[in-house]
Design a protein around this nucleic acid. Structure first.
Lengths: 223, 223
DNA sequence: TCGATGATTTTGAATAATCAAAAGTGAAAT
DNA sequence: ATTTCACTTTTGATTATTCAAAATCATCGA
């Protein structure tokens, strides 16, 4: 039988936690996983043990979980469905950047491979979703370019906003209203660690001030 | 909390069974309901009692179930989601008539009202889905015209194929390959009860022979 | 009125997923 | 070495949904 939505969500969360940690295959602690999924830690432990029995993750008691190759593929395919769905909702149904995440969160478990492929074709086999997140191919393979963020990129040098690693609708609405969306060209004018802020200058010379926590979520590519 | 997919499916099945029976508000026997949902009768009994506790159906032991007003509205909204989704998949994603039912069967539980309304708007607030089934409005109100079928309509009189009351992919593919889809103009040439068949003549004069069971599922309007 | 028959309900049990709270573990700080 | 504290696992329960099979009911015909 196909994996349940719950299983898919656990795999996705582990995948994303591994990625967030920088290195693939990192051990994800139970507490973090439970937090990401909104369940109590004991629940995550139980579920992870079941996933381990299915060969989708490898579990090290008191240390954490990581995905096996099989689990990684499944997780990537869930992400593929999610991201194609988001892009579709934005491009075809004209929904807002900020509101598609929740919707895709549910649709990703209901859409068939046939449907996802139709969408993929209609959109022209896109490489990234509206947030700049890479879309795995139908085998689950992804290339994740290593971008800098607004805290690490060079100052006073034009860069292209490429990816936003946060799905919070509130935050996305803020970015949108300040025209800080993937594709925009910007440059970092100043950083002030003490004041915990970064001053961004847009192409049209408008300044936007954002906190460092937020700045770290805005990934950019040279140019 | 929102109704589970299971609850939605029970309500939908009861709604459709009531409709199929001709009159709204008909008592649906447990066995029939269980059959429609692919569960054993005992399961349906248990579930229906829970639905009754929620005020969605009224349950008469050993007699059957019927929807309350609340249940009816919920069921109609599920049908709305289902039918708009089917039409959307056919019109926008170019999927086939025959394959959208299963897909919509899953998506109907995952799509938000926002999404459904977008789809409704994009499609121009359509009145019927690809099978000619009426689409309830966002309040759950539907108008279900009373059509004749190929067994009851007058002979040798042009009629318009208006609705197909069967979602079986195999059957739909047969109809499609014979150009018997909603909107086509046809007429019934002969009926033979003994041979259990109906001879239909298409607008282009091509004859199509179908069994009476199938003929009963093809609804038509005069003209 | 009495069964027989077929449908319906009940009972007991299973699975998936979850929580609360008790118990246990490990590693840093003393 | 010990203690401590945060994190993790275990335990016991609960909810939703389901099945198998035993028990019950309603009705039709004799």
């Amino acid at each position: 039988m196909p994996p349940s939505s719950t299983v898919e969500n656990y795999l996705k969360a582990i995948y994303q936690a591994e990625m967030a940690h920088g290195e693939r295959g990192a051990l994800v602690p139970m507490g973090q996983l439970a937090g990401a999924l909104g369940v109590v830690p004991g629940t995550a432990t139980t579920m992870v043990k079941a996933l381990a029995d299915s060969g989708l993750v490898s579990y090290e008691p008191y240390a954490g979980v990581r995905l096996t190759a099989a689990g990684q593929k499944l997780a990537a395919l869930v992400l593929r469905r999610h991201r194609l769905m988001e892009l579709f909702l934005v491009q075809v149904l004209d929904m807002s950047w900020a509101e598609v995440h929740e919707e895709a969160e549910r649709l990703e478990h209901a859409a068939s491979d046939r449907l996802i492929d139709r969408i993929d074709a209609m959109l022209g086999r896109p490489a990234v979703d509206p947030h700049g997140d890479p879309i795995p191919d139908h085998e689950g393979a992804v290339v994740t370019p290593r971008y800098q963020n607004l805290l690490t990129c060079p100052l006073d040098t034009p860069v292209t906003l490429t990816r936003v690693t946060d799905q919070d609708a509130e935050f996305l609405r803020f970015l949108e209203s300040n025209d800080l969306t993937p594709g925009r060209s910007i440059r970092v004018e100043t950083r002030d660690a003490a004041a915990d802020h970064v001053l961004v200058r847009r192409r049209d010379d408008q300044p936007v001030m954002i906190g460092m926590r937020a700045a770290a979520k805005l990934l950019v590519a040279p140019g």
